Amino acid sequence: MTPPADVSAQLRKGVAEYCILGLLSREPMYGWQLSETLVRAGLIASIGTLYPVLSRLRERGLVVSFEESTGAGPVRKYYRLTAAGEELLADFRDQWPTFSLTVGALIHGETPDDLPTDPPLEGTPDA
């Protein structure tokens, strides 16, 4: 018998990068800060899962890192969005409402003919 799929793990994996970009769109953050927020939200298991994602985002040119002294402790490595990261996040924000409504409709048994052609954007971050 096949064990039940961990659907939430796949969902988290699919949106974690965009959630990181969203957090960094507000302000530069250091790894521990990002990790605490994402762990509290249930999007990552631990800080150890964050750094590989940040590395991929850096390699793709979506974020850059820089070091800043805290004055009282060690130097911290901060991350911020690049113009390419801002553009990708804007594209994701534009596509997310339609995507989530479509998935919601399909998993509740609606057919493609039943799907809204111009879904409302109320309640989304851009509304």
Rank of each mutant, 00 (worst) to 15 (best):
T37Q: 12
A90D: 01
L21D: 00
V63D: 07
K13R: 11
S46V: 12
R58K: 15
R93W: 00
P116N: 07
G71A: 06
F99M: 10
W96N: 01
P3A: 12
A41H: 05
G104Q: 02
P119S: 01
V64H: 08
L81K: 04
V15F: 14
P52D: 10
E59D: 15
Y78P: 05
S8I: 13
R40F: 11
P3T: 07
G42W: 09
G71P: 05
S25Y: 03
G22H: 08
G73A: 15
D6G: 11
E59P: 03
D94C: 02
R93T: 05
L11E: 04
F92I: 00
S8M: 13
D113W: 11
G85T: 01
R40N: 13
T124F: 13
D126K: 06
V15R: 01
L62R: 04
K13L: 03
Y51M: 13
I20W: 01
L88G: 00
S100A: 09
A72S: 12
S8H: 12
L57E: 00
L115R: 13
K13P: 02
L101K: 06
G123P: 01
L23C: 07
M29K: 11
R26Q: 13
A5K: 13
A72Y: 12
Y79V: 01
M1I: 10
S69N: 15
P97K: 05
L121T: 03
L43D: 07
L101I: 03
T117L: 14
A45L: 08
T37I: 15
I107L: 12
V75K: 14
S25C: 05
E17K: 10
Y79D: 04
H108L: 11
F99D: 01
E59V: 01
G31P: 04
P4H: 09
L115M: 04
P3I: 10
V63S: 09
